[in-house]
Design a protein around this nucleic acid. Structure first.
Lengths: 196, 196
DNA sequence: TAGAATCCTTGATGTAGGTTAAGAAAGCGC
DNA sequence: GCGCTTTCTTAACCTACATCAAGGATTCTA
Protein backbone atom coordinates (compact mmCIF):
# COMPACT_ATOMS: atom_id res chain seq x y z
CA UNK A 1 0.00 0.00 0.00
CA UNK A 2 1.51 3.34 -1.07
CA UNK A 3 0.32 5.80 1.59
CA UNK A 4 -2.02 4.57 4.28
CA UNK A 5 -4.58 7.33 4.56
CA UNK A 6 -6.54 5.45 7.19
CA UNK A 7 -3.90 6.31 9.76
CA UNK A 8 -5.48 9.72 10.38
CA UNK A 9 -8.67 7.99 11.49
CA UNK A 10 -6.77 5.69 13.82
CA UNK A 11 -5.10 8.71 15.38
CA UNK A 12 -8.42 10.53 15.76
CA UNK A 13 -10.10 7.50 17.34
CA UNK A 14 -7.23 6.77 19.67
CA UNK A 15 -7.41 10.30 21.05
CA UNK A 16 -10.66 9.10 22.60
CA UNK A 17 -10.05 5.47 23.50
CA UNK A 18 -7.20 3.02 22.86
CA UNK A 19 -7.85 0.36 20.23
CA UNK A 20 -6.56 -3.19 20.25
CA UNK A 21 -4.83 -4.47 17.12
CA UNK A 22 -7.81 -6.73 16.50
CA UNK A 23 -10.28 -3.87 16.70
CA UNK A 24 -8.26 -1.67 14.40
CA UNK A 25 -7.90 -4.39 11.80
CA UNK A 26 -11.66 -4.86 11.76
CA UNK A 27 -12.33 -1.13 11.64
CA UNK A 28 -9.86 -0.71 8.81
CA UNK A 29 -11.56 -3.40 6.79
CA UNK A 30 -14.69 -1.25 6.78
CA UNK A 31 -13.04 2.01 5.77
CA UNK A 32 -13.55 3.44 2.34
CA UNK A 33 -11.61 6.21 0.65
CA UNK A 34 -13.86 8.59 -1.26
CA UNK A 35 -13.06 11.66 -3.33
CA UNK A 36 -15.24 14.57 -4.36
CA UNK A 37 -14.74 17.31 -6.89
CA UNK A 38 -15.03 20.91 -5.85
CA UNK A 39 -18.70 21.74 -5.43
CA UNK A 40 -19.82 18.09 -5.19
CA UNK A 41 -22.11 16.99 -2.37
CA UNK A 42 -21.06 14.52 0.32
CA UNK A 43 -24.70 14.59 1.39
CA UNK A 44 -27.61 16.48 -0.11
CA UNK A 45 -30.62 17.90 1.65
CA UNK A 46 -33.24 15.12 1.73
CA UNK A 47 -30.76 12.22 1.57
CA UNK A 48 -29.95 9.95 4.48
CA UNK A 49 -26.34 10.32 5.58
CA UNK A 50 -24.78 6.88 5.51
CA UNK A 51 -21.24 7.82 6.47
CA UNK A 52 -19.16 9.25 9.21
CA UNK A 53 -15.94 10.47 7.64
CA UNK A 54 -12.69 12.15 8.40
CA UNK A 55 -11.11 14.59 5.99
CA UNK A 56 -7.77 13.51 4.56
CA UNK A 57 -7.45 16.48 2.24
CA UNK A 58 -9.64 19.44 1.31
CA UNK A 59 -12.33 21.59 2.88
CA UNK A 60 -16.05 20.98 3.37
CA UNK A 61 -19.01 23.09 4.36
CA UNK A 62 -22.28 22.11 6.06
CA UNK A 63 -25.35 24.19 5.45
CA UNK A 64 -29.11 24.37 5.79
CA UNK A 65 -31.65 26.06 3.54
CA UNK A 66 -33.95 28.48 5.31
CA UNK A 67 -37.58 29.08 4.32
CA UNK A 68 -36.48 31.64 1.73
CA UNK A 69 -34.22 29.03 0.16
CA UNK A 70 -31.02 30.79 1.22
CA UNK A 71 -28.09 28.67 2.34
CA UNK A 72 -27.20 29.01 6.02
CA UNK A 73 -23.72 27.64 6.71
CA UNK A 74 -23.31 25.92 10.06
CA UNK A 75 -19.73 24.65 9.88
CA UNK A 76 -16.52 24.43 7.92
CA UNK A 77 -14.42 21.27 8.08
CA UNK A 78 -10.70 20.96 7.37
CA UNK A 79 -8.20 18.06 7.20
CA UNK A 80 -8.37 15.77 10.27
CA UNK A 81 -11.86 17.04 11.14
CA UNK A 82 -14.79 14.64 11.20
CA UNK A 83 -17.41 15.39 8.59
CA UNK A 84 -20.96 14.08 8.32
CA UNK A 85 -24.55 15.27 8.18
CA UNK A 86 -24.38 14.12 11.76
CA UNK A 87 -28.00 14.56 12.75
CA UNK A 88 -29.12 12.44 9.82
CA UNK A 89 -26.32 9.96 10.44
CA UNK A 90 -27.50 9.52 14.03
CA UNK A 91 -31.19 9.27 13.24
CA UNK A 92 -30.92 7.67 9.77
CA UNK A 93 -33.67 10.00 8.63
CA UNK A 94 -33.42 12.34 5.61
CA UNK A 95 -31.00 15.16 6.24
CA UNK A 96 -31.99 18.79 6.50
CA UNK A 97 -28.32 19.67 6.30
CA UNK A 98 -26.25 19.38 3.13
CA UNK A 99 -22.49 18.84 3.11
CA UNK A 100 -20.51 20.11 0.15
CA UNK A 101 -16.88 19.95 -0.95
CA UNK A 102 -15.53 23.50 -1.08
CA UNK A 103 -12.27 22.31 -2.66
CA UNK A 104 -11.41 18.88 -4.12
CA UNK A 105 -11.79 16.55 -1.14
CA UNK A 106 -10.52 13.15 -0.08
CA UNK A 107 -12.17 11.52 2.93
CA UNK A 108 -12.00 8.24 4.79
CA UNK A 109 -15.52 6.97 5.52
CA UNK A 110 -17.18 4.34 7.62
CA UNK A 111 -20.83 3.44 7.07
CA UNK A 112 -23.54 3.63 9.70
CA UNK A 113 -24.12 -0.10 9.36
CA UNK A 114 -20.47 -0.95 9.92
CA UNK A 115 -20.13 1.50 12.79
CA UNK A 116 -23.17 -0.01 14.50
CA UNK A 117 -21.69 -3.46 14.02
CA UNK A 118 -18.52 -2.25 15.71
CA UNK A 119 -20.52 -0.68 18.53
CA UNK A 120 -22.36 -3.94 19.13
CA UNK A 121 -19.11 -5.86 19.20
CA UNK A 122 -16.61 -3.62 20.94
CA UNK A 123 -17.09 -1.47 24.01
CA UNK A 124 -14.27 0.79 22.81
CA UNK A 125 -16.27 1.67 19.69
CA UNK A 126 -19.24 2.57 21.83
CA UNK A 127 -16.96 4.73 23.91
CA UNK A 128 -15.47 6.49 20.91
CA UNK A 129 -19.00 7.16 19.71
CA UNK A 130 -19.99 8.57 23.07
CA UNK A 131 -16.93 10.79 23.44
CA UNK A 132 -17.34 11.99 19.88
CA UNK A 133 -20.98 12.92 20.42
CA UNK A 134 -19.99 14.69 23.62
CA UNK A 135 -17.27 16.60 21.79
CA UNK A 136 -19.53 17.91 19.06
CA UNK A 137 -22.19 18.73 21.65
CA UNK A 138 -19.71 20.94 23.48
CA UNK A 139 -18.88 22.72 20.25
CA UNK A 140 -22.54 23.43 19.61
CA UNK A 141 -22.91 24.79 23.12
CA UNK A 142 -20.00 27.16 22.55
CA UNK A 143 -21.64 28.26 19.35
CA UNK A 144 -24.94 28.89 21.12
CA UNK A 145 -23.22 31.18 23.61
CA UNK A 146 -21.43 33.00 20.82
CA UNK A 147 -24.69 33.61 18.97
CA UNK A 148 -26.42 34.83 22.12
CA UNK A 149 -23.74 37.05 23.58
CA UNK A 150 -21.37 38.27 20.87
CA UNK A 151 -21.84 40.88 18.14
CA UNK A 152 -21.38 39.91 14.50
CA UNK A 153 -18.02 41.72 14.50
CA UNK A 154 -16.81 39.76 17.53
CA UNK A 155 -17.99 36.46 16.04
CA UNK A 156 -16.17 37.23 12.80
CA UNK A 157 -12.90 38.02 14.55
CA UNK A 158 -13.21 34.93 16.70
CA UNK A 159 -13.90 32.71 13.68
CA UNK A 160 -10.94 34.05 11.72
CA UNK A 161 -8.63 33.77 14.74
CA UNK A 162 -9.54 30.12 15.24
CA UNK A 163 -9.31 29.18 11.55
CA UNK A 164 -6.37 30.84 9.83
CA UNK A 165 -7.04 28.95 6.60
CA UNK A 166 -10.67 30.07 6.52
CA UNK A 167 -10.38 33.26 4.49
CA UNK A 168 -8.31 31.54 1.80
CA UNK A 169 -10.84 28.80 1.20
CA UNK A 170 -14.33 29.93 2.14
CA UNK A 171 -16.24 32.66 0.32
CA UNK A 172 -17.31 35.69 2.34
CA UNK A 173 -20.89 34.94 1.41
CA UNK A 174 -20.68 31.60 3.22
CA UNK A 175 -18.84 33.11 6.16
CA UNK A 176 -21.56 35.76 6.44
CA UNK A 177 -24.32 33.16 6.63
CA UNK A 178 -22.35 31.27 9.28
CA UNK A 179 -22.18 34.48 11.31
CA UNK A 180 -25.92 35.00 10.87
CA UNK A 181 -25.60 38.17 8.78
CA UNK A 182 -25.84 39.21 5.11
CA UNK A 183 -22.79 39.53 2.82
CA UNK A 184 -23.30 43.30 2.63
CA UNK A 185 -23.03 43.54 6.40
CA UNK A 186 -19.89 41.41 6.51
CA UNK A 187 -18.38 43.65 3.87
CA UNK A 188 -19.01 46.69 6.04
CA UNK A 189 -17.68 44.94 9.15
CA UNK A 190 -14.46 44.03 7.33
CA UNK A 191 -14.11 47.59 6.12
CA UNK A 192 -14.46 48.85 9.68
CA UNK A 193 -11.88 46.37 10.99
CA UNK A 194 -9.39 47.21 8.20
CA UNK A 195 -9.42 50.88 9.21
CA UNK A 196 -8.07 50.18 12.67
CA UNK B 1 -39.83 2.00 50.40
CA UNK B 2 -42.80 4.36 50.14
CA UNK B 3 -42.66 5.61 46.53
CA UNK B 4 -39.77 4.53 44.35
CA UNK B 5 -38.76 7.75 42.64
CA UNK B 6 -35.86 6.03 40.87
CA UNK B 7 -38.34 4.43 38.47
CA UNK B 8 -38.39 7.56 36.28
CA UNK B 9 -34.68 7.17 35.67
CA UNK B 10 -35.06 3.51 34.76
CA UNK B 11 -37.76 4.47 32.25
CA UNK B 12 -35.60 7.24 30.79
CA UNK B 13 -32.58 4.95 30.47
CA UNK B 14 -34.53 2.08 28.98
CA UNK B 15 -35.81 4.36 26.24
CA UNK B 16 -32.22 4.23 25.00
CA UNK B 17 -31.03 0.71 25.80
CA UNK B 18 -32.52 -2.22 27.73
CA UNK B 19 -31.02 -2.90 31.15
CA UNK B 20 -30.56 -6.28 32.79
CA UNK B 21 -31.86 -6.75 36.32
CA UNK B 22 -28.24 -6.92 37.51
CA UNK B 23 -27.34 -3.65 35.85
CA UNK B 24 -30.38 -1.83 37.18
CA UNK B 25 -29.72 -3.03 40.73
CA UNK B 26 -26.20 -1.69 40.55
CA UNK B 27 -27.29 1.59 39.00
CA UNK B 28 -29.97 2.02 41.63
CA UNK B 29 -27.47 1.52 44.42
CA UNK B 30 -25.66 4.63 43.17
CA UNK B 31 -28.72 6.87 42.87
CA UNK B 32 -29.27 9.68 45.29
CA UNK B 33 -32.41 11.71 45.84
CA UNK B 34 -31.70 15.40 46.29
CA UNK B 35 -34.02 18.33 46.97
CA UNK B 36 -33.51 22.04 46.40
CA UNK B 37 -35.45 25.05 47.59
CA UNK B 38 -36.72 27.57 45.08
CA UNK B 39 -33.77 29.70 43.97
CA UNK B 40 -31.11 27.22 45.17
CA UNK B 41 -28.30 26.17 42.83
CA UNK B 42 -27.84 22.62 41.58
CA UNK B 43 -24.52 23.87 40.20
CA UNK B 44 -22.93 27.28 40.43
CA UNK B 45 -20.71 29.03 37.93
CA UNK B 46 -17.15 27.96 38.75
CA UNK B 47 -18.05 24.65 40.39
CA UNK B 48 -17.43 21.26 38.83
CA UNK B 49 -20.69 19.47 38.08
CA UNK B 50 -20.53 16.08 39.77
CA UNK B 51 -23.98 14.83 38.87
CA UNK B 52 -26.18 13.86 36.03
CA UNK B 53 -29.76 14.03 37.28
CA UNK B 54 -33.33 13.56 36.23
CA UNK B 55 -36.08 15.81 37.53
CA UNK B 56 -38.69 14.05 39.63
CA UNK B 57 -40.55 17.24 40.49
CA UNK B 58 -40.07 20.94 39.85
CA UNK B 59 -38.49 23.16 37.23
CA UNK B 60 -34.85 24.15 36.64
CA UNK B 61 -33.06 26.71 34.54
CA UNK B 62 -29.57 26.68 33.06
CA UNK B 63 -27.82 29.98 32.42
CA UNK B 64 -24.53 31.67 31.64
CA UNK B 65 -23.29 35.09 32.67
CA UNK B 66 -22.14 37.28 29.81
CA UNK B 67 -19.31 39.80 30.07
CA UNK B 68 -21.73 42.41 31.42
CA UNK B 69 -22.71 40.01 34.19
CA UNK B 70 -26.21 39.49 32.82
CA UNK B 71 -27.75 36.04 33.01
CA UNK B 72 -28.29 34.35 29.65
CA UNK B 73 -30.68 31.41 30.00
CA UNK B 74 -29.93 28.45 27.75
CA UNK B 75 -32.54 25.93 28.83
CA UNK B 76 -35.51 25.13 31.05
CA UNK B 77 -35.92 21.64 32.46
CA UNK B 78 -39.17 20.04 33.64
CA UNK B 79 -40.08 16.70 35.29
CA UNK B 80 -38.57 13.66 33.49
CA UNK B 81 -35.97 15.86 31.79
CA UNK B 82 -32.29 15.28 32.43
CA UNK B 83 -30.58 18.15 34.18
CA UNK B 84 -26.86 18.83 34.59
CA UNK B 85 -24.23 21.44 33.83
CA UNK B 86 -23.49 18.95 31.12
CA UNK B 87 -20.36 20.51 29.65
CA UNK B 88 -18.73 20.59 33.07
CA UNK B 89 -20.02 17.11 33.86
CA UNK B 90 -18.41 15.77 30.69
CA UNK B 91 -15.11 17.56 31.11
CA UNK B 92 -14.98 17.66 34.93
CA UNK B 93 -13.72 21.21 34.69
CA UNK B 94 -15.31 24.23 36.44
CA UNK B 95 -18.65 25.08 34.93
CA UNK B 96 -19.39 28.27 33.05
CA UNK B 97 -23.06 27.40 33.27
CA UNK B 98 -25.12 27.58 36.44
CA UNK B 99 -28.21 25.48 37.09
CA UNK B 100 -30.84 26.86 39.42
CA UNK B 101 -34.10 25.56 40.88
CA UNK B 102 -36.92 27.79 39.62
CA UNK B 103 -39.43 26.07 41.91
CA UNK B 104 -38.80 23.60 44.77
CA UNK B 105 -37.11 20.69 43.05
CA UNK B 106 -36.58 16.97 43.67
CA UNK B 107 -34.08 15.16 41.47
CA UNK B 108 -32.54 11.71 41.23
CA UNK B 109 -28.78 11.99 40.73
CA UNK B 110 -25.88 9.78 39.77
CA UNK B 111 -22.32 10.95 40.24
CA UNK B 112 -19.70 11.20 37.51
CA UNK B 113 -17.55 8.66 39.36
CA UNK B 114 -20.33 6.13 39.59
CA UNK B 115 -21.44 6.68 36.02
CA UNK B 116 -17.89 6.12 34.79
CA UNK B 117 -17.69 2.97 36.84
CA UNK B 118 -20.86 1.76 35.14
CA UNK B 119 -19.49 2.70 31.73
CA UNK B 120 -16.33 0.71 32.39
CA UNK B 121 -18.32 -2.29 33.48
CA UNK B 122 -21.37 -2.39 31.23
CA UNK B 123 -21.61 -1.79 27.52
CA UNK B 124 -25.26 -0.77 27.95
CA UNK B 125 -24.22 2.15 30.17
CA UNK B 126 -21.76 3.28 27.53
CA UNK B 127 -24.53 3.06 24.96
CA UNK B 128 -26.96 5.05 27.10
CA UNK B 129 -24.27 7.68 27.52
CA UNK B 130 -23.66 7.79 23.78
CA UNK B 131 -27.33 8.02 22.84
CA UNK B 132 -27.88 10.64 25.49
CA UNK B 133 -25.02 12.79 24.22
CA UNK B 134 -26.34 12.37 20.70
CA UNK B 135 -29.82 13.44 21.81
CA UNK B 136 -28.69 16.64 23.47
CA UNK B 137 -26.44 17.37 20.51
CA UNK B 138 -29.43 17.20 18.20
CA UNK B 139 -31.31 19.61 20.43
CA UNK B 140 -28.46 22.11 20.30
CA UNK B 141 -28.36 21.83 16.53
CA UNK B 142 -32.07 22.62 16.34
CA UNK B 143 -31.46 25.60 18.57
CA UNK B 144 -28.61 26.82 16.37
CA UNK B 145 -30.90 26.79 13.34
CA UNK B 146 -33.62 28.60 15.27
CA UNK B 147 -31.18 31.32 16.32
CA UNK B 148 -29.87 31.72 12.78
CA UNK B 149 -33.10 31.63 10.82
CA UNK B 150 -36.04 32.68 13.00
CA UNK B 151 -37.07 36.11 14.27
CA UNK B 152 -37.44 36.67 18.01
CA UNK B 153 -41.22 36.61 17.59
CA UNK B 154 -41.10 33.23 15.87
CA UNK B 155 -38.75 31.80 18.47
CA UNK B 156 -41.05 32.98 21.25
CA UNK B 157 -44.11 31.38 19.70
CA UNK B 158 -42.23 28.17 19.04
CA UNK B 159 -40.94 28.01 22.61
CA UNK B 160 -44.38 28.59 24.12
CA UNK B 161 -46.00 26.06 21.79
CA UNK B 162 -43.51 23.39 22.78
CA UNK B 163 -43.67 24.10 26.53
CA UNK B 164 -47.21 24.83 27.68
CA UNK B 165 -46.11 25.02 31.31
CA UNK B 166 -43.39 27.54 30.52
CA UNK B 167 -45.29 30.80 31.03
CA UNK B 168 -46.62 29.66 34.39
CA UNK B 169 -43.21 28.89 35.81
CA UNK B 170 -40.53 30.94 34.12
CA UNK B 171 -40.24 34.71 34.40
CA UNK B 172 -40.44 36.72 31.17
CA UNK B 173 -37.02 38.12 31.96
CA UNK B 174 -35.52 34.64 31.75
CA UNK B 175 -37.52 33.75 28.67
CA UNK B 176 -36.26 36.94 27.00
CA UNK B 177 -32.63 36.04 27.66
CA UNK B 178 -33.25 32.55 26.27
CA UNK B 179 -34.63 34.13 23.11
CA UNK B 180 -31.59 36.39 22.88
CA UNK B 181 -33.50 39.64 23.45
CA UNK B 182 -34.17 42.13 26.26
CA UNK B 183 -37.26 42.01 28.49
CA UNK B 184 -38.50 45.28 27.00
CA UNK B 185 -38.42 43.73 23.54
CA UNK B 186 -40.26 40.61 24.69
CA UNK B 187 -42.88 42.86 26.22
CA UNK B 188 -43.40 44.56 22.87
CA UNK B 189 -43.52 41.23 21.04
CA UNK B 190 -46.16 39.91 23.42
CA UNK B 191 -48.22 43.06 23.00
CA UNK B 192 -48.07 42.67 19.22
CA UNK B 193 -49.12 39.02 19.41
CA UNK B 194 -51.99 39.77 21.81
CA UNK B 195 -53.47 42.22 19.32
CA UNK B 196 -53.99 39.58 16.67
C1' DT C 1 -10.06 34.83 -24.17
C1' DA C 2 -14.82 36.60 -24.45
C1' DG C 3 -19.07 36.47 -22.33
C1' DA C 4 -21.79 35.11 -18.45
C1' DA C 5 -22.34 34.28 -14.05
C1' DT C 6 -21.25 34.90 -9.41
C1' DC C 7 -19.15 37.44 -5.80
C1' DC C 8 -17.90 41.54 -3.39
C1' DT C 9 -18.46 46.28 -2.27
C1' DT C 10 -20.71 50.73 -1.57
C1' DG C 11 -24.54 53.92 -0.76
C1' DA C 12 -29.33 55.15 0.62
C1' DT C 13 -32.90 53.87 3.34
C1' DG C 14 -35.79 50.63 6.38
C1' DT C 15 -36.57 47.95 10.68
C1' DA C 16 -35.97 44.76 14.65
C1' DG C 17 -34.40 45.05 18.70
C1' DG C 18 -31.38 47.85 22.24
C1' DT C 19 -31.10 51.66 25.57
C1' DT C 20 -32.79 54.77 28.85
C1' DA C 21 -36.19 56.22 31.90
C1' DA C 22 -40.24 55.89 34.58
C1' DG C 23 -44.40 54.10 36.41
C1' DA C 24 -47.42 49.95 37.45
C1' DA C 25 -47.79 45.37 39.13
C1' DA C 26 -46.37 41.54 41.56
C1' DG C 27 -43.66 38.97 44.91
C1' DC C 28 -41.25 38.78 49.55
C1' DG C 29 -39.59 39.76 54.26
C1' DC C 30 -40.84 41.37 58.52
C1' DG D 1 -50.75 43.90 56.24
C1' DC D 2 -46.87 47.30 54.79
C1' DG D 3 -42.75 48.62 52.90
C1' DC D 4 -38.99 46.92 49.70
C1' DT D 5 -37.38 44.75 45.94
C1' DT D 6 -37.92 42.73 41.66
C1' DT D 7 -40.51 42.22 37.48
C1' DC D 8 -43.19 43.88 33.77
C1' DT D 9 -44.77 47.39 30.69
C1' DT D 10 -44.76 51.59 27.92
C1' DA D 11 -42.70 55.36 25.47
C1' DA D 12 -38.98 58.04 23.09
C1' DC D 13 -34.98 57.60 20.94
C1' DC D 14 -30.70 54.92 19.11
C1' DT D 15 -27.92 51.31 16.67
C1' DA D 16 -26.75 47.17 14.25
C1' DC D 17 -27.95 44.88 10.67
C1' DA D 18 -31.31 44.15 6.55
C1' DT D 19 -32.96 45.51 2.17
C1' DC D 20 -32.67 47.41 -2.29
C1' DA D 21 -30.03 48.94 -6.02
C1' DA D 22 -26.03 49.36 -8.79
C1' DG D 23 -21.13 49.13 -10.20
C1' DG D 24 -16.74 46.64 -10.14
C1' DA D 25 -13.98 42.49 -9.44
C1' DT D 26 -13.52 37.46 -9.92
C1' DT D 27 -14.38 33.10 -11.56
C1' DC D 28 -16.41 29.84 -14.45
C1' DT D 29 -17.13 28.02 -19.03
C1' DA D 30 -17.29 27.66 -23.79
Amino acid sequence: MPTDKTAILKIAFEKQAPLTEEEWIEIRSYLKERTFKKGAFLCRNGQVEHYLSIIYEGTCRGFYNNKEGEEISVGFMFPNDFVSAYYSFLTQRPSLMAVQAVTPVTIISISHTHLNRLCDKYKSAERIGRLNAERIYRRKEEREIALLTMSATERYQDLVDRNPQLLQEISLKHIASYLGIKPESLSRIRKQLAKQ
